[in-house]
């Protein structure tokens, strides 16, 4: 039986879709069967981040309305054999799907996959309710900014009210140079304020933009963000991985070892 994880944040633009794409790809690279579901109806984006936008035939709304079978709508990833995407509909809105339909779909997919990742839309309206309906656990994505943390706190409250037993935090776009100057909240500050389990910290890294440009998730490669995302995946699978020492991570030596790692591990 697969595990259903919703990736949510409240605030838009903090990196839910990037996190979904990278965590999903990372789990698939570790040999798991993974399906990514874009639940942002009307504003689909996971397909472009995954680089699969040209392969869409059917979408989430077609599936729940019975216009096609689930299998027909699933797009197989070009890199990993166990990775699939169920894209969202672009020409409909959030009211096209309801919570019981989502629950039914997710339960159907549970039998074939190890992990089902739901990319949640921003906000706390119907789209959010749909995304969390069938999920077992949640990853809350935030950035170290007042507005994102406030929204994350609200989301955590709503998840708790919906009796989520496991809520993990992923802090995105951390800038250690700013933390050092005292101009950004520390990881400890954010964890202390939100008081949920920390799953990972993703440093602010230009390579994320490059990866999105190319439609190639960067998980597992030598970049800082790629390594951080791989750690997140390993922790999700229950492994105890130490946090990266990011204060020194931009130094020359880490870059050298980064190249070394790259040649050693290849794409995984």
């Amino acid at each position: 039986m697969g595990e259903v994880i919703v990736i949510t944040s409240g605030k838009g633009g903090v990196g839910k879709t990037t996190t979904t794409a990278n965590v999903g790809t990372g789990l698939a690279a570790a040999g798991k069967k993974v399906v990514l579901i874009d639940t942002d109806i009307g504003l689909r984006n996971l397909d472009v981040v995954m680089g699969l936008e040209n392969r869409i035939v059917y979408n989430l709304v077609d599936v729940v309305e019975g216009g096609c079978r689930v299998k027909q709508a699933l797009i197989r990833d070009k890199r990993y054999p166990g990775l699939y995407l169920l894209p969202s509909a672009q020409t409909r809105d959030k009211s096209a799907v309801n919570e019981s339909q989502m629950r039914k779909l997710v339960d159907q997919l549970r039998e074939q996959f190890d992990y089902i990742l739901l990319d949640c839309p921003a906000g706390i309206e119907q789209g959010f309710k749909n995304a969390i309906a069938g999920a077992d656990r949640a990853i809350v994505v935030t950035t170290p900014e007042v507005s994102a943390i406030r929204d994350a706190d609200r989301i955590i409250g709503l998840l708790e009210a919906n009796s989520f037993q496991q809520i993990d935090l992923c802090i995105n776009r951390m800038r250690y140079d700013m933390v050092k100057r005292g101009d950004m909240m520390t990881v400890e500050d954010v964890v202390d304020i939100l008081s949920v389990n920390l799953l990972g910290v993703i440093p602010d890294d230009e390579s994320v933009v490059v990866s999105t440009n190319q439609g190639e998730p960067l998980v597992g490669n030598h970049t800082l963000a790629g390594r951080a995302y791989r750690n997140v995946c390993m922790r999700l699978m229950g492994q105890d991985v130490p946090y990266m020492d990011l204060e020194r991570s931009l130094s020359f030596w880490t870059r050298v070892t980064g190249i070394f790692h790259k040649s050693q591990e290849g794409r995984a």
Binding site: V146, D153, M178, D183, M184, D189, I193
Partner: peptide, 19 residues
């Protein structure tokens, strides 16, 4: 005061009334 500290203090107060 360092702005990171300001952010933390503001959030603590803000979240109390939000919660």
């Amino acid at each position: 005061k360092a702005s990171g500290e300001v952010a933390k203090d503001r959030l603590k107060i803000l979240l109390i009334s939000d919660r």
